[in-house]
């Protein structure tokens, strides 16, 4: 029962902060609220006993927001960006897309035959790793290394002398 109330409260926080992202008129606040929304979901995962998954959501989402901010500052230099600016454009189109995505996801959540058995014994972190990586280990490893090499190469090129105007 406590878990249910907690889940409802955290879900509400996630949804409200998620909506607020599109209401506020500052890029920085929108970023902060989006992160808050993700953190609420992460706490929900923690409450379900999925410690690894929950913490990784906090870790990855914070890093993701920071990467977003890099582009934000790079492309829209605007001291503190407090010049009011709406976070929405193409209102009609975005509404249609949002609604369609919501319907698909909600239908998926309701129609998927969720298992009713109790959780498998053992460490959920190990189970998650085995499920995600087990059959695809080689693909993941190769992709990861290729991605890393690309990033390092790009940085090496961009900081080499003469690349500036």
């Amino acid at each position: 029962m406590t878990l249910l109330i907690m889940a409802a409260a955290l879900g509400a926080v996630a949804v409200v902060t998620g909506i607020a992202v599109f209401v506020v008129d500052s890029m920085a606040r929108a970023t902060f609220l989006l992160l808050a929304s993700f953190v609420a979901v992460a706490v929900l995962l923690l409450a379900f006993g999925l410690a690894y998954l929950g913490i990784v959501v906090v870790l990855m989402m914070t890093i993701e927001m920071m990467i977003m901010v890099v582009f934000m500052v790079m492309l829209m230099m605007n001291p503190a960006g407090l010049e009011p600016m709406t976070m929405v454009h193409n209102r009609a189109g975005s509404r249609v897309i949002a609604l369609a995505v919501f319907v698909v996801l909600a239908a998926g959540a309701l129609l998927v035959p969720w298992p009713t058995r109790p959780a498998a014994p053992g460490d959920p972190t190990t189970a998650l790793g085995a499920d995600l990586m087990g059959p695809q280990m080689l693909t993941m490893t190769v992709l990861g290394l290729a991605l890393l090499a690309t990033i390092v190469g790009t940085v090496a090129l961009s900081v080499s002398p003469g690349s500036r105007r």
Binding site: L35, I55, V56, V58, L59, T62, I63, M65, M66
Partner: peptide, 8 residues
């Protein structure tokens, strides 16, 4: 994760 929050 807590260290990363500090950058934010």
């Amino acid at each position: 994760a807590m260290e990363v929050l500090a950058w934010f």
